[in-house]
Design a protein around this nucleic acid. Structure first.
Length: 641
DNA sequence: ATAGGGTTAG
């Protein structure tokens, strides 16, 4: 793959061509080179840029001389392959053959320079040209070039100048500008382009529509994006992909699956890009049934060798808890990249198999793969979940010393968690204070969580104060502190937290849980009665709660100081509805139950323990961060629950 | 005959 990073110009040695200029004569022989031009055009059009570039020296050595019809295709090939060296040689040939005053050739040259990250050269050509300042295409090439080189200001300046001089704007101008508006800072400008696009009657162009759609979703305006998508006069595969990926990137995994179904119903057939987004959403939802369906589709459609999809499959199976399958796919991959390793390491980490995660990380290093910040997050969190304190600290230390990677907040929060769980609260606190950057909410939150485990009220209050400054509306932290107060029987504290929450008008956000059943995802909100099987679900809930009460009276199994009243009074929780639904549908035969966004409040935690005791089954329950494997009412991860 | 563009994984 060709690197698009401006800092790492990448041209493989095999593709650098040495064109022999000896044969070029100044009087071009059009008739003899037209057949070469035809071949060149065909190759470039079909995307065989490599072959097209090999044809060029053959043309020279045959005695034919390149003309104004030759250069655009040859230059396009250099641009596509990001080969500035042959590109510059072609520029020399252009001058030598007297084609440099040809606007088509000039534009192709500019485009080539832009794609090869030599946007300065392109600008020089533009400024020196007598035609360029009047031609829309030249502006288009340069504007797109600036956008590609992350010099969006220059792109906008040039666009302003173009408007001022009255040069016509067309849809390709839009295609050069809109992709630069995919950050929230530029959204305002992007929306003005959207208006202009409509005003100029260019809104029939699907490509521009796709760019605008991408702009909205990447700026986080998914709803505007969806509205735009629904109103598009024509939707192509890329439009569907942009919308689906947009949902995926903004965390609306369920909407991804819904839209994917809709797409299938409309008879639009998905490509690897679609399926990558779908799999990533399956991973987030724990929807392995849909994931397996997608895997079949990948096989049927012959996408099996696509590395993006292989990585997405590994990630999906790993996150859904099927580590055997994930490992099998991972092992079968002929080429493993950093993303593949991160997926499998993270998978083992989430499920508490810290030893395996660590082993794989070391294997990755041995395989000569250079770790990045993301894979460190995976391995550090694996260590913290599995209690591998020493190992985790070693890795953390190696980040800077060995790999010159500056740890970010996300790494600090893992290490604070690591130290905190091990009871080394003081060290955790010192680590936070030693941070060069400003700690974020997650860092203080990790300390707060650790204080909760070790019942350190004093430090918890400090961590709470800090975390609330940073994330005043994150309800979880208030609940955490309140629970700590309740465990340490500090009633005044509980009241204090309640008052604080009331003053700030904080209410528990409408969390939801989901269960995958029958190839569909069923969402449950607190107190939700919208599900078609609501009656049965509540009946099941009643039965469970009766059983819970009975059992708790008979055996006094409430080992957490909770009581059966809690169980019945907080029945609106979405997790409970989800659990009831799953139990009902599988006639108590459910072995795996996957729910999302489970808030780990003491209350639900007791409920889940009771359920698994009552039905005498194994459960796998997923909260926002990890899986909890229940057997006989006990979770194997042994913490928190 | 000849130029400009959009969607992917941890």
């Amino acid at each position: 793959m060709i690197s698009r990073s401006a800092n790492s110009l990448c041209y493989s040695s095999t593709t650098i061509l040495r064109f022999n200029t000896r044969y070029i004569c100044s009087t071009s022989n059009t008739s003899s080179c037209s057949s070469w031009n035809t071949q060149l055009r065909e190759l470039a059009k079909q995307g065989h840029y490599q072959k097209a570039l090999y044809l060029y020296p053959q043309l020279l050595s045959s005695g034919a001389s390149p003309n104004a019809f030759t250069f655009p295709f040859a230059l396009k090939s250099c641009a596509a392959l990001c080969l500035p060296v042959p590109g510059q040689q072609l520029h020399a040939h252009v001058i030598r053959t007297g084609c440099h005053s040809e606007p088509f050739v000039q534009t192709a040259l500019m485009s080539m320079y832009c794609k090869c990250f030599l946007v300065e050269n392109a600008r020089k050509l533009f400024d020196e040209s007598t035609y360029a300042r009047r031609l829309t295409v030249c502006y288009n090439a340069l504007i797109a070039g600036y956008t590609h080189n992350s010099e969006f200001c220059d792109a906008v300046l040039l666009f302003r100048r173009m408007r001022l001089l009255g040069v016509a704007v067309n849809s390709v101008t839009m295609l050069g500008l809109v992709p630069g508006c995919t950050v929230p800072l530029h959204l305002g400008f992007g929306m003005s382009l959207h208006c202009l696009n409509v005003k100029c009657g260019l809104d029939g162009d699907m490509s521009v529509g796709n760019c605008l759609l991408t702009m909205y979703v990447r700026c986080g305006s998914v709803w505007s994006g969806r509205k735009f998508f629904d109103e598009m006069p024509e939707k192509g595969l890329i439009s569907w992909n942009a919308m689906i990926s947009g949902y995926a990137q903004n965390g609306h995994a369920n909407l991804v699956l819904d839209l994917y179904r809709e797409m299938e119903l409309k008879g639009v057939s998905p490509d690897p890009v679609t399926l990558v987004a779908v799999l990533s959403s399956c991973a987030n939802l724990g929807a392995s049934e849909v994931g397996m369906e997608v895997e079949q589709k990948i096989k049927r459609r012959g996408f099996g060798s696509n590395q993006f999809l292989q990585n997405a499959l590994v990630n999906m199976y790993a996150r859904c808890g099927n580590l055997v399958k994930a490992q099998a796919i991972f092992d079968d991959m002929p080429e493993k990249n950093l993303v593949s390793w991160t997926a499998i390491i993270g998978g083992y980490g989430i499920h508490g198999h810290g030893d395996d995660a660590v082993k794989l990380f070391d294997q990755m290093i041995d395989a000569g793969i250079r770790p990045d910040k993301t894979v460190f997050v995976s391995v550090l969190s694996a260590c913290s979940h599995a209690g591998l304190t020493k190992r985790g600290l070693e890795y953390f230390d190696s980040m800077e010393k060995k790999y010159r990677l500056q740890p970010g907040s996300e790494h600090y929060s893992c290490v604070v968690d690591l130290l905190g769980r091990a009871g080394r609260l003081k060290e955790a606190q010192e680590l936070i204070e030693s941070m060069s950057g400003k700690p974020d909410g997650a860092v203080w939150g990790a300390l707060l969580g650790a204080c909760k485990i070790h019942r350190n009220v004093e430090l918890a209050e400090l961590a709470f104060e800090r975390v609330i400054e940073l994330e005043p509306t994150n309800i979880g932290y208030y609940v955490l502190l309140s629970n700590l107060y309740s465990e340490t029987k500090y009633t005044e504290g509980i009241l204090k937290v309640r008052v604080m929450m009331r003053e700030r008008k904080l209410r528990k956000d409408p969390g939801f849980s989901s269960v995958e059943y029958g190839g569909r995802n069923h969402l449950f909100m607190a107190g939700d009665r919208s599900h078609p099987q609501t009656e049965e679900i509540y009946a099941m809930l009643n039965r469970l709660e009766d059983l819970a009460k009975e059992t708790s009276e008979r055996r006094k199994i409430d080992d957490d100081g909770g009581n059966s009243e809690l169980v019945s009074c907080a029945r609106v929780h979405s997790e409970r509805l989800a659990i009831a639904f799953a139990l009902m549908n599988t006639a108590l035969g459910s072995r795996i139950l996957v729910t999302k966004n489970l808030r780990v409040c003491t209350d639900c935690h007791i409920f889940i323990k009771l359920v698994s005791k009552i039905v005498d089954r194994q459960f796998v329950i997923r909260d926002a961060t990890r899986f909890h494997h229940f057997q006989n009412g006990v979770c194997s991860c042994n913490d928190y629950w």
